[in-house]
Design a protein around this nucleic acid. Structure first.
Lengths: 248, 248
DNA sequence: CACCCGCAACTGGTTGAACCAGTTCGAGGT
DNA sequence: ACCTCGAACTGGTTCAACCAGTTGCGGGTG
């Protein structure tokens, strides 16, 4: 199979998986760059580029003169890792709680973006959102394009919130999902329900009542998310209260 | 002042600022690596390491054989950029809306983390949160340490939510703020109010009623955030440079 | 004239070897 | 027993060369 990705990216993927899988335990040092690079069959410079990537993701911290520390992703890992964790968990069976958490986060952000969009969006932005939903509705038979359209809509919604921080979070998350189509696909609920939900959300945004939009969006996204979790064979204990957890 | 940071990091900072300031407009190509590296006084390899960093942040996209595209951070930039945008905006006067958006995001995440912590946290985690608040309360006279303690508390709270996605977002945001102490400082509200708020939040978390905790947290964080915005917006040097603010 | 084919001459991607600069730790002197 | 200092690690940086895509121009060909 022909590889089109760059060498340092492939090496970064390999190393990331190894680290997340615990092959290089947190707190220890990575093997030396010279050794590791030959072991992976690339030059030291390529290895270094991969290490730099993972440093940016909060997985590694090179220490001049000493070694390259492996960090605990639970303490320092960035959001981009979630998709990799899910993909990795898919092979070991504990992807569902991770996906549930990711849905929880997305729901949170989506609700607020919707509320803010109702309060702040411009006419042009609302027209644009309509167009995006329409376009997406025509792609139900082309799953990859459908997913991509869904992510584009999420970005547009964030933009309509006029909150730059929200926009950038949306960028990070959608970019992550675009690179992990499998994870993104697990996200999609039934298309009919989703699209009709989008339509009604746009109505509420157009009415300009942020809190009404938030309330409505919360109820419906929770319903859609529940569908997704159930379809995945929901983990017992997902969304459970403390009392319920302690009882089990 | 002695520079301890690595060369590629400094170059990345320089380039990032230039891009965010519009010196390299989105949609255009960066100057060739060979030219740019000599212009910046580093080797081409170091320049490439910097470019790789910025690629990870969604600011650049190198195209083999063609050039290095400058992207529009509003469409592809990651969350990490917010602090840089704020710092940059502090010199041009439009930092306040950015900070307001960042506060909005933090509030959103904090409220949910608090609610989930009430529903899911373990005894150990709650004890740990108490200890962190106590420690923070003893650092009110050491602003940098206080800020750092505040960020540590935020991470612990996210961990207590038992939502890995939330944890990783918190990691990304706190890491960003740790690297931009000035931006983090702008975040801090009056210490007495904040600490008493933390105490009451912990009480609610211990009572295990997530929704009550969410409601209460929303009201109080909104109040604290408004204080912060008023302080920034009402001050004589609204959005002024640090020098101007200190002069008043 | 219009087309298109292919060959420079760009661009970024990768490499090896060499050297700089920190950190660690133990051999050897006191 | 204690310092000290230097060798032998570690990562950081550079150079010069070459590989590999893209682009566009110029010369052929219909």
């Amino acid at each position: 199979m022909a590889e089109k990705t760059r060498a340092d990216e492939q090496v970064a993927n390999t190393l990331r998986d190894a680290i997340l899988a615990g092959e290089f335990p947190a707190g220890t040092d990575l093997p030396g760059e010279r050794e590791l690079s030959t072991r992976l069959g690339v030059s030291r410079l390529t290895l270094r580029a991969a290490v730099a990537r993972l440093e940016g993701e909060g997985l590694l911290r090179p220490v001049h003169g000493s070694g390259t520390r492996v960090l605990d992703y639970r303490q320092t890992g960035g959001v981009e890792l979630i998709a990799h964790l899910v993909a990795l968990g898919a092979t070991t069976g504990d992807a569902v709680p991770l996906l549930a958490g990711l849905l929880e986060l997305r729901r949170l952000l989506a609700i607020e973006a919707i509320g803010l969009a109702a309060e702040r969006s411009t006419d042009d932005e609302r027209v644009g959102l309509r167009a995006l939903v329409l376009r997406q509705s025509r792609l139900v038979d082309d799953p990859p394009a459908y997913v991509s359209a869904d992510l584009a809509l999420a970005r547009a919604l964030a933009a309509a919130s006029h909150n730059t921080a929200l926009v950038l979070v949306a960028n990070t998350l959608t970019r992550m999902l675009e690179r992990q189509p499998g994870v993104a696909a697990a996200f999609m609920a039934d298309t009919a329900g989703t699209l009709s939900f989008y339509g009604r959300v746009l109505d509420l945004i157009e009415q300009g009542d942020g809190n009404a939009a938030r309330r409505f969006a919360r109820v419906l996204i929770e319903r859609l998310d529940r569908q997704i979790i159930d379809r995945l064979g929901g983990a017992p204990g997902y969304g459970a209260t403390r009392a319920e957890r302690e009882a089990s």
